[in-house]
Amino acid sequence: MAILVDKDTSIIVQGITGREAASFTKDSLDYGARIVGGVTPGKGGQEVFGLPVTDTVRELTERFPVDATIISVPPPFVKDAAFEAIENGIRLLLVVTERVPRRDVVEIVELCRLRGARMIGPNSLGVISPGKSRLGMVGGPAEDVRKSYVPGNVGVMSRSGGMTTEIANLLTVNGLGQSTCVSVGGDPIVGSQFADLIDVFEADAETHALVLFTEPGGAMESALAARLRERPSRLPLFIFIAGKFVDQMRGVRFGHAATLVQSEADTTEAKARILSEAGVTVVEELSALPGLVKEALNG
């Protein structure tokens, strides 16, 4: 039983007729994801890859049980799309869109809390449980996904979408499969951080170790460290922290919107220190990661 998404997770795509959404919808169907329909206001009645397109989420939730939605609409429409999904009973939202206004993200988080829903993203490439299902576009077309991701027992969480696949690939070529991989999103505020998702991985019998990828900036790592100090994890945890050079370049943004060093706490050095104190293995060299994970799994 995979976490977040599984073989029978029923998924809709909001913004399904968009260029990017149409493409990842097709790729996801090829990979075996159970997408049951999509929403694009004004295009109700059309079909995409044999799936019904409706004007409203409700038209789909009335026809099918819907577990999750992928939101791929332009930034000004993300909040409304998310509210529509939550208010129609969908409990897992993946927001692919980048550059969503911060206030809108926080309002979605607040509504999720009120209704018991979970948002992954914004600016997330998605969630994948190799061989079972995928929510979003992480890994690309099905044949590429199969090269990088294979089923196994290592969980992955990453602030970078591209590095989610890079790390899965590194594990795969070294004979380590993955249970679930989550691109948590590269924005300053995301719905599900490391500290929110670690519980989900810990509750998963198929996950035996957890690998994290992070960058300078943000408070996600200190929140994780606080959680681990309070309640140590049953899982061996590994983190690779990229962007050491950014420590010396205060105020300059590199890569993702949140990758910015403004204070001491934002540096890779500070993050490495607090996580290491909290029992996380800080991996200095990426290629050393598979060996360390194997050691922990066999030891």
Binding site: S158, R159, S160, G161, G162, M163, E166, G186, F213, E215, P216, F240, A242, G243, K244, F245, V246, F254, G255, H256, T259, E285, L286
Partner: peptide
């Protein structure tokens, strides 16, 4: 180098192995 996370990883790795980067950039 690119994307967002990998560009940081690659830049660090070049420095770690004694290389002298002329620039950071991000393609994707």
């Amino acid at each position: 180098i690119g994307g967002g996370g990998a560009s940081l990883t690659a830049f660090d790795a070049v420095q770690r192995h004694g290389g002298k980067p002329a620039n950071y950039c991000e393609i994707g």
